[in-house]
Amino acid sequence: MPNHTIHLAVYNTMADWEVGYVMAYINSPEFQKVPNRYEVKTVGETLEPITTKGGLRILPDLSLDMLIPDNSRMLILPGADTVAEGGIDAFAKMAAHFLKAYVTVAAICGATAALAKIGLLDAVPHTSNARAFLEMMTNYKGTDYYQDVQAITSGPTSTSGTLITASGIAPVAFAVEIFRELDLYSGPTLAAWIKLYQNQDPNGFYELMAEHAA
């Protein structure tokens, strides 16, 4: 039976806005092909509360040592102010286990640097805030695979699962890649969602309403 749990990594100073669209719409049954198919669980390094960059206090559902790739459909890693000092390295190492187990990992902004630091971006197409951002912050060796796009999905390959990466200024594009990977919406519904949120075209709203009423 497919696993339908989405795990969101949470840590102090995490950039809550980077996953705002993702969390809101995974948890909103309207428009979805199969309403309420997925549930979101938050994962902290411990069970202690964390405080986001936006000042929100989150009590993790489980700690990192309780997380098992086989019990997950996807691990989502937002950025955080602590990335440069190794603050989310433990989560990057867990991401490596997920990819080895062919479970999808999605990383945005600083989280991509944490993945690059341990070599997870060395041989797969990926993106981030900028190529120079990865080169400055890590022992990054994947420059030839860097794609100058807002967000990109790579894999799976013969040795690794699917990896989604995104720039920190592209939370909408990040959400779109995740929605596609999860098969959350029908084609017309996702096109309307993109028109509204990514293209900022108000007609997308009416198209979404029409899809919902159909």
Results as ranks from 00 to 15, higher is better:
D201G: 13
K117C: 02
H126G: 12
Y145R: 02
T159W: 15
P125Q: 03
D89M: 10
G110I: 08
I152S: 02
Q32G: 00
A114W: 08
R57W: 08
N71C: 15
N27W: 11
A111M: 01
P156V: 01
N203I: 03
L75E: 09
E45G: 07
T138C: 14
S63W: 08
G110P: 00
P2R: 12
L190N: 12
L121D: 03
V124T: 15
T13R: 00
A173C: 15
L121K: 03
I68D: 11
I26N: 10
G20H: 05
D65M: 08
Y206M: 04
L56Q: 12
T159N: 13
W193K: 01
G168M: 15
T138R: 11
A213D: 15
A166M: 01
Y21R: 14
I118P: 03
Q198L: 13
L67I: 07
M209Y: 10
E211D: 11
P156I: 06
V22R: 12
P78W: 09
P60Q: 03
D144R: 12
V103W: 05
A191W: 09
T159P: 03
H7N: 15
T46M: 01
T51M: 09
Y38V: 01
L120F: 13
A151H: 05
F174I: 02
A101G: 00
V43L: 12
T46V: 01
A214L: 09
N199E: 12
A151T: 07
A173Y: 14
V19R: 00
A9P: 03
L190I: 07
D122V: 06
K41Q: 06
L115A: 04
S160V: 13
A132W: 14
D183N: 14
A170E: 13
S186E: 03
D89F: 02
L59P: 06
I178L: 10
V149M: 06
G44W: 04
Y25W: 15
A84M: 09
Y145V: 07
G44D: 01
G204E: 07
T153E: 11
G161E: 04
G55P: 01
A214M: 05
A24H: 08
S186I: 02
L196C: 09
T52V: 01
N129T: 04
K195W: 02
L59H: 00
S186N: 07
Y197G: 08
E39K: 14
